[in-house]
Simulated scan of single mutants.
Amino acid sequence: MIYAFDSYYFGDQAKTVCIAFERWDSETETKIFTEATAVAADYESGAFYKRELPCILNLLKSIELKDGDLIIVDGYVTLDNEGKIGLGGHLFEALKGKFPVIGIAKNGFNSPDDLRRAVYRGESNTPLFVTAIGADVDEITLQVKQMHGNFRIPTLLKKLDQLTRIFE
Rank of each mutant, 00 (worst) to 15 (best):
residue 146 Q to G: 02
residue 126 T to L: 14
residue 29 E to Y: 06
residue 52 E to M: 08
residue 66 K to L: 03
residue 105 A to Y: 07
residue 14 A to S: 13
residue 6 D to L: 02
residue 16 T to P: 03
residue 127 P to G: 01
residue 152 R to L: 12
residue 2 I to R: 13
residue 98 K to V: 05
residue 149 G to R: 03
residue 84 K to D: 08
residue 85 I to N: 09
residue 73 V to D: 09
residue 44 E to H: 13
residue 141 T to I: 03
residue 93 E to R: 15
residue 27 E to C: 05
residue 132 A to D: 06
residue 31 K to G: 02
residue 30 T to L: 14
residue 71 I to M: 13
residue 12 D to G: 07
residue 121 R to Q: 06
residue 37 T to D: 11
residue 4 A to M: 05
residue 79 L to T: 04
residue 121 R to Y: 05
residue 14 A to D: 01
residue 157 L to N: 12
residue 157 L to E: 08
residue 120 Y to P: 09
residue 93 E to H: 14
residue 111 S to A: 14
residue 23 R to V: 00
residue 50 K to P: 00
residue 155 T to I: 03
residue 161 D to Q: 13
residue 31 K to T: 13
residue 20 A to L: 04
residue 91 L to I: 00
residue 104 I to L: 06
residue 106 K to V: 02
residue 99 F to N: 01
residue 125 N to S: 14
residue 73 V to M: 05
residue 145 K to M: 14
residue 103 G to Q: 06
residue 164 T to E: 07
residue 41 A to L: 04
residue 147 M to Y: 05
residue 62 S to M: 06
residue 159 K to N: 08
residue 139 E to I: 04
residue 108 G to T: 14
residue 85 I to M: 12
residue 162 Q to F: 08
residue 22 E to M: 10
residue 34 T to A: 11
residue 154 P to A: 07
residue 72 I to K: 11
residue 101 V to H: 11
residue 117 R to D: 00
residue 34 T to E: 15
residue 91 L to S: 04
